[in-house]
Design a protein around this nucleic acid. Structure first.
Lengths: 224, 224
DNA sequence: CAATAAGTTAACGTATACATTAATAAATCC
DNA sequence: GGATTTATTAATGTATACGTTAACTTATTG
C-alpha cells in the first residue's frame, strides 16, 4: 500500500499494522493488549512493538499502561467535542489561508472534483463513496491552507475519530445540504474572500460536530 | 521539579534530560547526536535513549535520522509562521470558550494575578519576570478554555518556539502595550463576551507573531 | 469469614549481543 | 585526475537475556 522497494523497519511496520488493527476494530476501543501478545501477532520481537506503541501513544491512539498492556483508547462525547472544536477551528483557518493564497482555478481542480464526486455519490445513494469524497475535500482544503502543522494535527485528529465517523456514517441522513456548503466554500476561496471562507467552513463544521455528537447520544454510544 | 517518591523510568528521565539539554542550548539547533553519545552522556544504555528520541521526535523537537544520529530541529521563519498561526488560532478559540464558560471572578483570579505580575515587571524593567507572567497568563487562559487537546498542542508548540522566544526577549522593546490587551481580554472573559475575547486575543497574538518574525529577520536569524 | 501476609507469576524496563547496511575511505580503472 | 568499484567502519535495528516488581494466588490469622 505504501512502498515496495525500500524495506521498512519492523518498528514502522508495527506502527502501520497496529494502526490498521485499531481502525478495523480488530483491536477494539478500550481493549488491553500485552506487548508480547502484539509481538507474536505481528511476528516480531517486543523491541519494535514497544517502539511502535510509544509512537502510537504520542498520537493518542493508545495508552501504555505498565504491566497491564497497552489500552486502545476509547473516546467519550467530551473527547469528541474537544477534537471537533479543534478540527473546526483549524480547518476554518486553513480555508481562510487558502482563500488568501489566491489560487488559480487550475490549482483548485482537486477541490472541484471532490465536490463533483460527492454530488454524484449523494445522487447514487453511495454513502461510502461520499465519505471518501468528503475526506478528499477536507484533506485538499487543509493542504491548500499551506500550513504543514495544521495538516499534521488535522490528520492525527481525523485518525482518532475515524471509528466514530464510520459508525455514524450509516446512521446519519444522506448529506445533501453538505454539498451546498462545499460549493459556497469553493466560491469564497476562488474569489479570495478569506472572511467568508472561514465563516462558511466554520458553520459547516459546527453542524457536522453537533450532528455527530447528537447521533452518538441517540444511539447510546458512550465511548467509541 | 516533578517527583521524588516514585522512581521514574530511565526512558522518561531521558526524555526530560534531553528536553532540558535542548532548551538550554547544550544540544544546539541543527546539531547531530548519536544514540550512543547520548546514552553515554545520560549514563544509560541505548534502549531508553532510543525510546526517548522516538517520543521527542513525535513532539517535533528532534528528528531521528537513521545512521546519522538525531538532529535537533531548527526552525525557519516559515516554521515560525506556521506555529504562530496555529497558536493564534487555538488560543483565540480558548479565549472564546473561556468567555462562554461564565467563570466567576474568583475562578479568574490566576488570570488577574498574572496580569498584575506582568504590570509590576514592566514597571521594574524585569524582562524575565514579565516573560514568566506572560507564560502564566497564556497557560491559564488556555486552561480556562477547558479543552485538553488545545492545552496539549499549545504546550507542545510553545516548547518548539522556546529558544526563539528567549532570544527575542532581549531584543524586543519592553512590552507595555501588551498589558492593555491582557486587561481588555480579561474584561471580555469576565463579562462572557466570547466574540470580543476571541478578537482581542487574535489581534494580540497576531502582533506578537509579526514582531517575533520581524525581530528574527532584522537580526538575520535564519534558523533558531 | 474478612482481612492480612506470604509466596508466585509474569510483564515490563533495561542492558547487551549481533547481523545488517549506509556512510566513508581506499583502491582501481579509464 | 576524475570516476567507479571495492573494502572498511560503525551506527543502527532487532532479538534476546534477565533482574525488578506489580499483580495475582494462596495461605494464614484474628
Amino acid at each position: 500500500m505504501s512502498d515496495d522497494t525500500k524495506a521498512k523497519s519492523q518498528s514502522l511496520r508495527a506502527v502501520d499494522d497496529i494502526r490498521s488493527l485499531i481502525f478495523s476494530g480488530e483491536l477494539s476501543a478500550g481493549s488491553d493488549h500485552l506487548e508480547s501478545e502484539l509481538a507474536e501477532r505481528l511476528g516480531m520481537s517486543r523491541t519494535p512493538v514497544r517502539e511502535a506503541t510509544l509512537i502510537l501513544e504520542s498520537q493518542n491512539l493508545l495508552e501504555v499502561r505498565p504491566r497491564r498492556g497497552v489500552r486502545i483508547l476509547a473516546l467519550s462525547a467530551d473527547d469528541m467535542r474537544e477534537i471537533y472544536e479543534v478540527l473546526t477551528e483549524l480547518e476554518s483557518l486553513a480555508a481562510s489561508l487558502a482563500a488568501d493564497a489566491n489560487y488559480t482555478e487550475a490549482e483548485l481542480s482537486k477541490l472541484r472534483s471532490a465536490i463533483d464526486e460527492m454530488e454524484a455519490c449523494v445522487k447514487a445513494g453511495d454513502r461510502e463513496g461520499w465519505a471518501q469524497g468528503d475526506a478528499d475535500f477536507h484533506d485538499e482544503l487543509v493542504h491548500l491552507g499551506g500550513n504543514k502543522r495544521i495538516e499534521s494535527i488535522v490528520s492525527n485528529f481525523n485518525d482518532q475519530v475515524r471509528r466514530a465517523r464510520a459508525m455514524t456514517l450509516r446512521m446519519r441522513p444522506m448529506p445533501s445540504k453538505s454539498n451546498e456548503d462545499h460549493r459556497k466554500l469553493y466560491e469564497a476561496i476562488a474569489r479570495g474572500d478569506a472572511k467568508a471562507a472561514r465563516q462558511i467552513h466554520w458553520a459547516h463544521r459546527s453542524e457536522a460536530k453537533d450532528m455527530l455528537i447528537e447521533l452518538l447520544n441517540q444511539h447510546g454510544l458512550r465511548r467509541v
